[in-house]
Every structure is written in C-alpha cells, then in structure tokens.
Design a protein around this nucleic acid. Structure first.
Length: 514
RNA sequence: GUGGACGUAGCUCAGCUGGCAGAGCACUGGAUUGUGGCUCCAGUGGUCGAGGGUUCAAAUCCCUUCGUCCACCCCA
C-alpha cells in the first residue's frame, strides 16, 4: 500500500504520551484524594451540553469562544467551555433534594476556541470543586483553602493568591440606579480595571467612545441640594410641583410651550444631568477601587474608607475580613495573600468573593486556578431560589507547567517489571502460561512475542528499561526451571518453576526499593 | 482577531548568494546460530508542511495557505 499522508493533531490539542499521561494521572489522583478528604464527592457531567447552558450567564468573552454546532436533530449543542455550569446543572437536575450543603468534585476536558500558546490550548483539563447551598465566609474560606492545599500538596510554593469581591461594584451599581446600558458597561469594564496597560483611563475613553458620556461635556454636578426631592418624587408629582411653582412665580411661559411642557423639559434636563453625575460617580469610584490592593491589615482600612465615602454597605469588607481570618486557621501562608478589588473575572456569574492563584514562574498564562462565589447561578439555571454557592477549578496543564518550573519531581510512567522471553517457537505456550501466572501474583509482565533472537530481546529489554528478564528455553523447562536475569547487575540464576511465588516476591521487592 | 520567528528522515538539525536530498542520534539486520550497554559494517526511512508562480533547473527566490512556538488580545 502507498504510504498515506499522516493525519495531524487538531490545532490547539495535545497528545498525552506515556510520560505526560502518568503525570496527569498522578496530579489528578492526588487532588481528587485531597478533595475527598474534605467530603467532596465526584461527579462527571457529559462534555456535550445544550449551548444554552453556557449562553445564559457565561459572559461575552467565553461565549465568543464556544464550540457550538447543531446535531442531526437540530439541537443546538456545545462542547463545555468550563465545568461549573455543568455541575450546577447536575445539581439542579438530579441533586436538588439532597441535604445542603452539597460538596462535589470533578475533573475533565473543556474546550475553547483560543489562539493557542504556551499554557493555553483549545482542549484543556479542569479539575475542581463546587460547594452548593452555603453562603458566607466560612464556605468561601473552605474553597480557597482547598485550592491552596491542593497546590501545597503538589509541592508548589511560588504562588500569589489574589482575592477580590465583585459585590462591592455590584452594590454601587445598584445604589446609583444607572441605565441598563451603563450598568452592563461597568460590569464588563471590571476586568480591565486591574490591567496595567488598560486601567481607569481606558474605561474613561470607552465611556466617551460609546457616548455614555458625551465628548467634551463638562463634568456634571449631582443635584445633592434642595432640588433633590424633585428627582426622588414620582414623575407626575414632580411635574405638578414645577407647574405650581411656575404659576406662583407668575412666570408666563412663551406661547410655544405651556407650563406642563416647560416642567417636563426641566425634569428631563435634571434627570439627564443626574444620570451623567451618577456615571461620573461610578467612574470616580472605579478610579479609587483600582488603587485598592495590598496585604490584609492595611488594605482593609482603605476598603472601609471607600465604602463609607460612597455610602455603601460594609458587608463585603466584613466578608473579606472574616475570610482572611479563617484562612489563617487553615494555615494558608499569609504572605501569599493579596487583596485586589480591581480585578474582575471574565465569567459574569460571580456575585461575591472571587479569587485566582498565580504562579510566579509562568509568564503570561500564569493563572493556576480561579473561582469564587456565584449566588445567582442555581436560580439562573432553573433551580430553587437562594441556593448560594461557590467553587473553583484548576487548569491541570498549567499545574504541570508550574511543577516543571519549580523543578519538582514528576510521576513516571509505570513500565513492566519483567520481560518473559521464550527461546524458540516450541516454548511460546509455556512462556505465555508463565507470564499469566506472574501477572496473577501482582507483577507487570511483558511477553516477548516477536520471535526474534535472544540477543535482540535482551537489547529490547535493556532499551525499554525493564529491570528483569525471564528466559524460558527448552533446556530450562526440561529441568523445570527458568532463568531470571537482573538487567542492571547482569546476574542470572536458575529459578525452579515450583517456587514462582518467591520469584515474584523478589521482583516486587526490587520494584519497591526503586 | 493582530504581529514576529520557525516548518528539511521517528528526534535534533545542516544545506538557503538556485545545479544529484545530507549528518548525528534512533530504528532494522549482520560481525556474535541461547545473553543487552562498547565497537565495526550494512540497511530501512523524505511528496524538503501544502498549493501556486518565476526559471533550462527551486528545499533554496516570490505569492498564498496550513501548522508550531512566542508576543498581543482574551480567558480558567
């Protein structure tokens, strides 16, 4: 047959070869055991989901990278871009009557149409946990501590835990009663705030570009004076009040407009100015928010002042304080913590504390894990109201990059202990029988099946790193023995077939000795 | 989506001012008919990423495209 053109790997995907496969499995098992020790039980949702699951609340960044397609029945499906939404769906579909809180862990591939580079692929592996049905800092702390413990268990040290709180921004937006357009603009802007090359200036620019604030407009002053009640009143009442004022002052409206129109115009003008002022206030707030980052004790003072200045509830601050306190109890190294209210996350469903952990040696794609609190998601996906929840997920491929960067020992693939080599076709059956017996006693046994010279077989054993060879020849079988050869020391001795158990034990002991 | 570097044997790469497709390692066999690491000998393996153009002649020059890596962008 003609030599065919090889089929390439799909762009942005990886083949796990025996070495990297063993590393993946080892990391996965270690984390899974850790999660289990905190009571998290495994679930595995399908990779395929209805596209709507991820369209409802993921946010534009992820949606634009979603792999979607129609199946033969014209269902709109997608490959999941992350697992949290799927796990919440599993909860809503099948576990909603379980006693709360529900602790779940998962691991599996996720897909995004990205431009691949180091640490970023189109198929990647998420491993994480979700804690459903518990609100408050104790739950947040368990999640974040678990993320830290996971990295610690792997031996990673050069870490930064960034803590943020989406609730601060959300509270401000609710207070300001902004237009829907302005409100979603600010939510989307959050994640650019913390980036050095973007920051508050880029947000101001975008406000002008989108004409939320007209270019060249003088900064609007809020009506915090005696006129304020007019804005708070119902529109009809406000209009009536203005009309009466005009009448009392004997102001004669020009012919073209009656008093009612004048009042409406005045109110409209005031409202517009008020909205401009509110937008301005949000920008001022963001500018200050962007500056709030640092280590726990000092940064709390700053947060307190900011909340007070903008008349916001102190709840987020209390959340963060109790969270940090609890993390101390979990013995999370405090010097790794950094509070940063300027950072946002690309996924829109977060509502409270958010966090990510970065590795110092990883360069651009340095985020080992990310997560946070998402109190609305269960309801958004059709579950009961008020099932608060939080969780996080590791990027498995990045964990391995970090392990490599810290030069930590990686798991090795487990090759066979022994190669059974028959000499000549006549003893092939006996060799196979022997190999089966040895496998039965716990050894990893490879059988030579190539019918090649003993020399080539030993050379193969040597090159593939098998520590022992067992030579089965007619001479040996006549004496009811086999020859066991230690490949490293080149020692070789006859072993009676009657004492295979002892032989297996010797080899097992050698394996354990390393 | 944008920009840069790079694609030649399984791997690492040379060849790139156009003129027969190369080296080292690896693999297979032999020297050594039942004993591996060293040595020596021989051999297998290539649409030079793909397509088009220029030319008597293209791995080499030009265009397009795909892929990899890196940096943007975005994201866990």
């Amino acid at each position: 047959m003609d030599r065919q053109r090889p089929i390439e790997r799909v762009k942005g995907t990886l083949d796990l070869l025996p070495e990297s496969y063993a590393q993946h499995v080892a990391v996965r098992e270690q984390l899974s055991r850790l999660f289990a020790s905190y009571g998290y039980r495994g679930v595995e949702p399908p990779i395929l989901e209805h596209a709507e699951l991820h369209l409802r609340k993921s946010g534009g960044g992820i949606i634009s990278k979603l792999y979607t397609f129609q199946d033969f029945a014209r269902r709109r499906l997608c490959l999941r871009p992350e697992l949290t939404a799927s796990v919440v769906r599993v909860y809503v579909n099948a576990l909603r009557h379980a006693p709360l809180p529900v602790r779940l862990q998962y691991c599996g591939p996720a897909f995004r149409y990205e431009q691949p580079q180091r640490g970023r692929h189109r198929q990647f592996t998420h491993i994480g946990v979700e804690l459903l049905g518990a609100a408050g800092p104790a739950a947040d702390a368990e999640i974040i501590a678990l993320a830290c413990k996971g990295l610690q268990a792997l031996g990673l040290r050069r870490l930064t835990v960034r803590l943020g709180h989406v609730g601060v921004m959300l509270a401000l937006l609710t207070n300001l009663r902004l237009s829907e357009r302005a409100r979603s603009f600010f939510i989307e802007s959050m994640e650019n705030l913390g980036k050095p090359h973007l920051g508050i200036e880029s947000i101001k620019q975008a406000l002008h570009d989108l004409e939320i604030i007209p270019a060249g407009a003088a900064p609007a002053e809020p009506h915090n004076d005696i006129l304020r009640p007019l804005l708070e009143a119902r529109p009809e009442e406000a209009a009536a009040l203005i009309e009466r004022l005009l009448a009392m002052m004997n102001v004669q409206p020009r012919q073209s407009r009656d008093a009612r129109q004048v009042a409406a115009r005045l109110l409209g003008k005031m409202r517009h100015e008020e909205h401009q002022a509110q937008v301005q206030r949000a920008v001022d707030f963001l500018a200050e928010l962007a500056l709030i980052k640092g280590q726990p004790p000092e940064v709390f003072t700053d947060i307190g002042k900011l909340l007070e200045k903008f008349a916001l509830p102190q709840q987020p601050l209390e959340d963060l304080q109790r969270l940090v306190e609890t993390l101390r109890a979990y013995e999370v190294p405090e010097e790794q913590l950094s509070i940063d209210l300027s950072f946002g996350r690309g996924i829109q469903y977060y509502t409270g504390v958010i966090f990510e952990i970065q590795h110092e040696a990883l360069g651009r794609e340095d985020e080992l894990c990310g997560g946070g609190r998402y109190d609305d998601l269960v309801a958004v996906l059709g579950g009961d109201e008020a099932v608060p929840a939080c969780g996080f997920s590791f990027g498995l491929e990045r964990l391995l990059l970090a392990l490599e960067a810290e030069e930590l020992p990686l798991a090795r693939s487990e090759g066979p202990d022994l190669l059974v080599i028959p000499i000549g076709r006549a003893v092939g059956g006996e060799a196979a029988r022997l190999a089966e017996l040895l496998r039965g006693s716990g050894l990893r046994v490879e059988l030579e099946i190539k019918e090649r010279t003993l020399k080539s077989s030993l050379s193969y054993a040597n090159k593939s790193g098998v520590p022992f060879a067992c030579i089965v020849g007619e001479d040996e079988l006549r004496a009811a023995t086999v020859r066991l050869r230690n490949m490293r020391t080149r020692e070789e001795r006859s072993e009676p077939l009657a004492e295979l158990g002892r032989l297996a034990a010797t080899i097992l002991a050698a394996r354990q000795a390393g």
